[in-house]
């Protein structure tokens, strides 16, 4: 019960710090929050086994989830790099284009790339299967 309390106290100190401008309190809040998080994690980890279903699901999806997360979070970086590259090459003035359309364009471009990659992978697998059959 101590750890959730620590997390709540840390959160409260952080709110006070930000709302009153008492920046010195921020490090205290961070310390209390970290103590709550680490303490909670360690206590839960050292306690009994998690439910078997939870284990099974995690075993199946942990890595897939990690891969998907990294791909999704790569998007803004890819977008910035893409725009910087085009900007450097064509000296285009993007001042008139809104961020929303830029993001959308990049998402569409990256989705198309992903679809292309998936199609190529599938084609490769199909070829290997065909090789075996033939």
């Amino acid at each position: 019960m101590v750890c959730p309390i620590l997390l709540a106290v840390g959160f409260a100190i952080l709110l006070v710090s930000e709302s009153t401008g008492l920046a010195a309190l921020r490090i205290v809040a961070v310390g209390v929050l970290l103590a709550g998080a680490i303490g909670g994690g360690v206590r839960a980890g050292l306690a009994s086994e998690p439910p078997a279903l939870f284990n099974a699901l995690a075993a199946r999806f942990t890595h897939t989830l990690a891969r998907v997360t990294i791909l999704v979070l790569l998007l803004p970086t890819a977008l910035s790099l893409l725009l910087a590259l085009i900007g450097a090459l064509l000296r285009t003035d993007y001042a008139q284009i809104s961020a929303f359309w830029m993001m959308l364009g990049a998402v569409i471009a990256l989705t198309l790339l992903a679809v292309l990659a998936a199609a190529l992978t599938l084609a490769g697998r199909a070829l290997r299967v065909a090789e075996k059959i033939l």
Binding site: I38, V42, G45
Partner: peptide, 10 residues
């Protein structure tokens, strides 16, 4: 941080 602590504690 909690996830890391949990994993290490396991």
């Amino acid at each position: 941080v909690a996830l890391l602590a949990y994993g290490l504690a396991r």
